[in-house]
Design a protein around this nucleic acid. Sequence first.
DNA 1: TAGCCTTTGAAGGCC
DNA 2: GGCCTTCAAAGGCTA
Length: 485
Amino acid sequence: MPQLGRDGDDLGANDELIAFKDEGEQEEKPNVSSERDLDDVKSSLVNESETTNSSDSEADRRPKPHPDVESRARHGQLFQEGPRKQHDTGLFQPSPYVGYPFFMISDLGNLCSPYLTNGALAPTGRTYLPFQWPLLDIPGRAAIRDSAAPTHLVRLSLSATHTQLVGFPTFLCCYNSREDTSAPGSLSSVTLICSSIWEAGMSRSPHTACYPVSPGGMTPIPHPLGWLLVSSGFSPRLVPPPQTSVPHPAIVPASVKQEPGASHSHPLLPCRKPPSTSEHDQEEERKPHIKKPLNAFMLYMREERPKVVAQCKVKESATINQILGQRWHSLSKEEQAKYYDLARKERLLHSKLYPNWSARDNYGKKKKRKRVKSETQLEGEMTCLSHLTHTQLSQASPASSLDSPATPTTALASPAGPAQLQPLSLTTKPPRITHSVGRNAVTPGPPTPSSTDTPTSSPPTASSRSSPQPLSHPFFLPPPTSSHR
DNA sequence: TAGCCTTTGAAGGCC
DNA sequence: GGCCTTCAAAGGCTA
């Protein structure tokens, strides 16, 4: 595997990529206060999008990095955490917004002190970015979940575009593939590696910009590093970057995938794709895949699905979705309004992040992505949005708050336990309800919980869609709640 | 192993 | 404006 060996400030030299977390190492629980801070930031971001723009410049809004740390960063030093588990302040947290498989780094400014004079700490779990970073989302969960191989894929999480715009060093993200990441928020041992990309042409100060810029609005800039692969022995190796790419953080360009027949030492290693049949195809494949923002029902599903699975002992998604659909209709307007509001904020932020994105862009990509995933067993896992500050959106993250006491347990507070239910009958599939007629014909007024609600957040009534088959099974019946209609 | 199933909502295109 | 299609999540199921 060729090293990306260049000059002295080679950004991915092995000696600069050190800090890896032992796979067996446990992670601290997320810090509550840090989550609260994040929520504040999310809230402010959303509010900002909903209100008139302030006159403050983005630089003014950006947290000031620690000068000492910033200086180190400019010198391309890699900072590592010491061997002892650092009592961090919840720096690495599973994103409460599980709509996207992110990790959040809330504030790194207070992590300067542990750094040694040479910029490195004794080897242990994590590497911290050596300067203050307001918020960072690191894509990951999916990449880990299906990584059966005892290897660790490290990829650039920020495109050069972002790096140059936002001005902080690109970082690398190492996933611990052995960790059980099936549960939301379980991505705890992500290791960050801060490279010295800072010196690779990053002209702006680390705090000249704060908010992400849509990748579609930027000229693609090939990243100097490309991909980094870390074997099970944590021996990082650099992989030549994709030929053209600009992988937006979130996004794995289709061109970055395993070349059929190509031999390289790691099954997860993304490789350059052989030339497509047409330039149009190549262009399409280079386009980043930005997923649609989740609508209210999807947000509700993400929150309630695990509960239904646990409660009903049903795993089949089709059945679960039927149950959730029934429960959704049984929710009070106030309860639904929570999700509509969340979805509206989701759309707001999404449109802010990707102003040029259109839902039409994803048409036809779904099957293509499936094919690509089957070829590489990777791409689908890597197509997670890693846009900055995306998690800032979720003030009330549904899934992340699954186990939170503050989470309203509206639809699943049923006293009826699983033992009292008859999951077997659910296997009798009701006639399929097609939504080909009049699904979106009617869009009645939303619960409008707040005056900020926009017409686009209007939840449809039951009449707006063909009436689902009545499901009399207890599973489909919402648990009695005091707030129900 | 690719695609289906199943749900609701949003968005875009067509007429 | 109405209708239609597609996608978003999820994981078991099926051809």
